[in-house]
Amino acid sequence: MARFSPLEWPVVRQLRSGDLLGRGPAVTSQRTREQAPRTSTADRVVQSVCPYCAVGCGQRVYVKDEKVVQIEGDPDSPISRGRLCPKGSASEQLVNAPGRQTRVLYRAPRATEWQHLDLDTAVDMITDRVLEARRNGWQDADEQGRPLRRTMGLAALGGATLDNEENYLIKKLFTAAGAIQIENQARI
């Protein structure tokens, strides 16, 4: 550690730097002067939308070496104008959390352990189950012969982290599959 010099006393620094009110460089420590924001070292900036609710606040995602280093509000967003709620401000932690799952986990019925599956296998399993549930719950007509063309074997419950576009696509998908029980957590 360097020896402290009287020239570094705050009052002396104020007089030497011309910062007589002590609101500028005279009160800035050496450590503060050496620091740089995480955003200044980013390789690129990607525009995104906050994943937490249906408001759709704009975000700027700062990426360095293909890793997210910072997420801030996007001032160009007409929705949020650069502001984020506390959850949106902390969404960098969602991306970089050490416990974040990046592979598909599956636990077979009555099994006690999870196993890793590749994505294609998982999608095939989901497809088979959706088609079977649709087939088993299909109602072509009611007791009077009126056409129903629906299934009671499928239902959808969307979460509040989905934005309007995702909810629209989910509604279209499940309606096309014949489901009539389609709801969203934000309405419940």
Rank of each mutant, 00 (worst) to 15 (best):
R107D: 01
K172S: 03
A176K: 11
K171C: 01
R100L: 04
D74V: 00
R81Q: 13
N164Q: 12
G158W: 09
W114G: 00
A156I: 04
L154E: 03
I71G: 04
V68P: 06
C85T: 02
P86G: 08
A133W: 01
G82K: 03
Q144P: 00
E113S: 10
Q185S: 13
K87D: 00
A141V: 11
R134W: 00
R110K: 10
Y168A: 03
A54T: 15
E183C: 06
Y168S: 03
L119N: 08
V123Y: 01
N96G: 04
F174L: 14
D76T: 05
A54N: 14
D128A: 15
E132I: 13
A141F: 01
V55G: 04
L84P: 01
D76G: 06
Y106D: 01
G58N: 07
Q59K: 10
G153Y: 03
M125C: 02
R110Q: 12
T127C: 07
A122C: 01
W114Y: 12
V130A: 08
Q70M: 12
K172A: 04
L94E: 06
A97H: 15
P109R: 13
K67A: 11
R150Q: 14
A156S: 12
Q139K: 15
A54S: 15
L169E: 09
V61G: 05
I79M: 09
P51G: 07
W138S: 10
V63P: 09
T175C: 03
D65S: 13
N184D: 09
P147T: 14
R107I: 00
G145M: 08
A141M: 11
L169H: 12
N167S: 10
D124P: 01
R135C: 08
L105W: 11
G56S: 08
V68G: 08
Y62W: 13
R110I: 00
A176T: 10
Q93M: 13
A141W: 00
A54F: 10
T161G: 09
P75Q: 07
E92R: 14
K87V: 04
T175A: 10
V61W: 07
V55W: 05
S91G: 02
R150A: 09
G159Q: 04
T127D: 12
A155P: 03
G153N: 07
K171D: 11
Q185Y: 10
W138M: 11
L94F: 09
R110M: 07
Y52V: 10
Q59T: 14
K87P: 01
D128L: 12
W138T: 12
T121L: 02
L131C: 05
A90K: 10
A108G: 05
R134T: 13
R129D: 13
N164F: 03
A177I: 05
I71R: 06
A54P: 07
V69S: 06
I71Y: 02
D118N: 04
M125I: 02
A108W: 02
E132T: 15
G56W: 05
G153E: 08
T121G: 00
K87G: 02
A155C: 08
Y106N: 02
R60G: 03
A90V: 11
K87S: 04
D128H: 13
D76P: 00
T161K: 14
I170Y: 11
T127R: 14
D163W: 05
C57P: 08
I126V: 15
